[in-house]
Simulated scan of single mutants.
Amino acid sequence: MPKLHLLALIVWTAMLTASGAVADVQSRADTDTRSTTAPGGAEDATIRRVLTEFRTVRVPLSRAMAIAERLHEGSKTADISFESAGAPVYRVRTIRNEQVWENTVDANSGGIAGKEVASSLRELGREDLANMIALKWIKQELSDAVQVAERAAAGSALAGGLVRQDGRLNFVVVVAAGDDLKEVMLEPPKVAKQGPIHR
Rank of each mutant, 00 (worst) to 15 (best):
E127Q: 12
E150I: 03
A85M: 09
A176N: 06
R28Y: 08
G110N: 09
K76Y: 05
D44T: 14
K190E: 14
H5S: 11
L61M: 15
L162P: 03
I197R: 01
V175E: 06
I10N: 04
D179E: 13
L71W: 01
W137D: 11
R55G: 02
A42R: 12
K76C: 04
I67R: 05
V50E: 01
A159I: 12
A29S: 15
A153H: 08
A107I: 10
A64Y: 04
R122Q: 09
F171T: 10
T13R: 11
A113S: 15
A118P: 01
A153F: 10
E69T: 03
N170Y: 11
A45N: 02
L186W: 00
A64F: 08
I197S: 07
R164C: 07
S35G: 09
M1V: 00
A192K: 12
R34H: 11
I138N: 01
D44V: 14
E123A: 15
K115H: 11
N103W: 05
G195D: 09
P196Y: 00
W137V: 02
V117T: 13
K182M: 09
G111H: 11
V174D: 08
E73A: 14
R48Y: 00
G114Y: 14
E102N: 10
E69N: 04
L4V: 15
R96G: 10
G86M: 06
A130Q: 10
A149S: 14
N131I: 06
W101M: 14
E141Q: 12
L9H: 09
P188E: 04
I138G: 00
E102G: 12
M65N: 04
E123K: 07
S156E: 12
L4Y: 11
R164V: 14
F82W: 03
E150W: 02
V11Y: 02
T46W: 01
V22I: 14
V163C: 04
W137P: 02
E123V: 08
M1W: 00
R164H: 05
A14Y: 06
E69S: 07
Q147H: 08
R96I: 15
G161Y: 08
D179H: 03
V89Q: 11
L16P: 01
L169C: 05
W12L: 13
A8V: 11
G161P: 11
S62I: 09
R93P: 03
F82D: 00
V89I: 15
R168L: 13
I112V: 15
K115R: 15
A118N: 05
W12E: 12
V148N: 02
L9P: 13
A149F: 09
A176C: 10
V148C: 06
G40F: 05
A38T: 14
V92N: 05
L7N: 03
M185Y: 13
L4R: 05
L158N: 01
S75I: 07
E53W: 01
Q99E: 14
V105I: 15
S143P: 02
I10C: 01
V59R: 11
E141M: 08
E53H: 07
V59C: 09
A42N: 04
R91P: 04
D128T: 03
